[in-house]
Design a protein around this nucleic acid. Structure first.
Lengths: 207, 207
DNA sequence: TCTCCTTTGTTAATTAACAAACAAAGTTAA
DNA sequence: TTAACTTTGTTTGTTAATTAACAAAGGAGA
């Protein structure tokens, strides 16, 4: 499968999460307009996304929930799983760990890193905190391919360098400092300050 | 000024943050390609954004840093400021408060809300925690127009209803549950699970 | 049986976002 | 003085994303 559009990938992730809830409720089939309502998009968008992954529903019954979840899994997940590291064991790091622990078999947070000596060796919801200078070694040992940066803003750049040096394949940067990565690393920036300023701008124009 | 494109607003917010750093370093002028390098975009994009807000630089010197910061402020900020509430005083709420406190004069977090009795009345970095059932009243008293949702996922929907009822104008939702708002409220969803799954998908395809 | 209705799957059109191209203007240097 | 260079501002083209449009299929109900 050639790589899917950015936005489609995001939506598939969201669809799956709600499909799992539907499945847990015993719902066997779902229509495109039901999915659309949950996510505030159009049914056409949903059908288009599903078309792109090559699934096909049945007329008048819609999509089989279990089958669709299964297929989205085949698209999004790596069969052997992917291990994730949190860099920065502050409030945000802890929030992320709590969110993810025991949620997804195929995407597990297996290590946290921090620079503060008093945090080293402690465990956050079962995830051990290692010193930053062991990052490269632990990444290799634990076969980690994704890093989430949630350190204070000034450390974003050096931490990125560490992750790149450790041969990480994907980085999710939660600091407001834009960072640089080479071609062979996927980078996603998620800047909370910008998100809030954006909401503020558009809220300003609401009656 | 008619409302700017979504993406332009995001970039202006980011430009400003780095321009302030430049200003603090005493840099008076900056070229479009310098801004572009910092943010990993093209100089053309930068010039286009700046064109959209009607600023004009000087040939061979570039843009005046102070003037540009000032103008972006006029575009993005509300002169009388905007007050923000955090709903959910967990790890993520604390992370956000720490991020924002004393950062921006025009965008201040003035209250936090939580459902757990033991948190009520405590103060996080100077921001007091109120019980959830006082939300409407406090929002009115403190003239809050933006709410950031960082409660556990199951409470996202009822909390949104509370915020809408309290006549909030903008909502930033950090839970993975999509929520519904009426026309006159701006909603931004920022789902960490999706962000991570997206990174995982694209990282999978890196060599 | 036949018509209408619902819902999918797909193509076509539109819109939004980004990038390329280049004229204009002023600076430097020969 | 004049030619080359730099950098902005704007137009035009291109790519990506969304929306609109509609054929096909297969019930439901008259």
């Amino acid at each position: 499968m050639s790589t899917l559009p950015d936005k489609t990938v995001e939506r598939l992730s969201q669809y799956r999460r709600n499909l799992l809830i539907c499945d847990a409720k015993g719902k066997e089939h779902i229509f495109s307009h039901e999915i659309a309502n949950i996510h505030h998009i159009t049914p056409v968008q949903v059908r288009r996304d599903i078309m792109l992954i090559g699934y096909t529903g049945t007329l008048r019954k819609g999509y089989n929930v279990k089958e669709l979840v299964e297929l989205i899994g085949q698209i999004l997940d790596k069969p052997e799983g992917q291990n994730v590291a949190i860099v920065g064991a502050g409030n945000l790091g802890r929030a992320l760990i709590k969110y993810f622990v025991n949620r997804r078999k195929n995407l597990q947070i297996v290590a946290a890193f921090d620079i503060h000596p008093e945090k080293i060796g402690t465990s956050l919801v079962g995830v051990e905190v290692y010193p930053l200078d062991q990052l490269k070694q632990i990444v290799k040992e634990k076969n980690i391919c994704i890093g989430i940066i949630c350190v204070p803003v000034n450390e974003a750049v050096p931490v990125t360098a560490l992750l790149v040096d450790a041969k990480i394949k994907g980085i999710l940067n939660y600091t407001p400092r834009p960072v640089n990565v080479p071609e062979n690393v996927y980078l996603e920036e998620n800047d909370m300050v910008t998100s809030l300023e954006k909401v503020a701008y558009f809220a300003k124009n609401k009656n």
